[in-house]
């Protein structure tokens, strides 16, 4: 314990009584700790400490083998876990894409239906019968159209000739 006090005095040059008492407790604790470690270490020591080189080598080899195996196992486990995490993600992504495509196609179909309905509406509104009061104008328009088409045909024939 005195050696502990000397060692501690080097580090803690404190002089007041409280600090000294405190240091004494610390020195005492460390001294007991050292004694306990020495005792525990000596307890487990085999009676004969002959140098067993081959045994040490074998142990080292087996430790290395075990280490390699442990790492391999850990790698396999990690791969399995990753795969387990990735596969559902991929599947859900695919499902999501398919769902989006179906929605888009439904939208396109709906749009087409709406367009055709609009076209039908326009066609039906445009093909309404011309009122009696507008009949002469309609005939004029028809004459004009037939004149234009006749004139066009004549020009074409002239061109051929």
């Amino acid at each position: 314990m005195n050696t502990e006090k000397m060692k501690l005095d080097e580090l803690y040059p404190e002089r007041d009584a409280a600090s000294r008492r405190d240091l004494e407790v610390l020195a005492n604790s460390i001294s007991q700790f050292r004694a306990a470690v020495h005792h525990i270490a000596s307890q487990g020591e085999p009676a004969q400490v002959a140098w067993q080189l081959e045994q040490a080598r074998q142990r080292r080899r087996s430790v290395r083998r075990r280490l390699v195996l442990e790492w391999a196992m850990a790698a396999v486990t990690a791969i399995v876990l990753c795969a387990a995490a990735v596969v559902p993600t991929v599947n859900s992504h695919r499902e999501h894409v398919a769902q989006l495509q179906a929605q888009r196609q439904a939208q396109i179909l709906k749009q087409r239906e709406a367009d055709s309905a609009l076209l039908d509406q326009v066609t039906s509104e445009l093909s309404e019968a011309v009122p009696d009061s507008m009949q002469p104008l309609a005939e004029m328009g028809a004459d004009h159209v037939s004149y234009q088409s006749t004139a066009g045909e004549t020009e074409k024939n002239n061109g051929r000739n």
């Binding site: 270490a41 487990g44 140098w51 040490a56 080292r60």
Partner: peptide, 30 residues
């Protein structure tokens, strides 16, 4: 051996590990 084992035991707080590493230590030294 006692000194090396004691140091390893106090550092690792594990008797088996300390014994194995003591063997390793002397094997490396050898």
């Amino acid at each position: 051996r006692p000194r090396v084992f004691r140091f390893l035991l106090a550092s690792l707080r594990d008797r088996d590990a300390a014994e194995n590493l003591t063997q390793d230590c002397f094997l490396k030294a050898y």
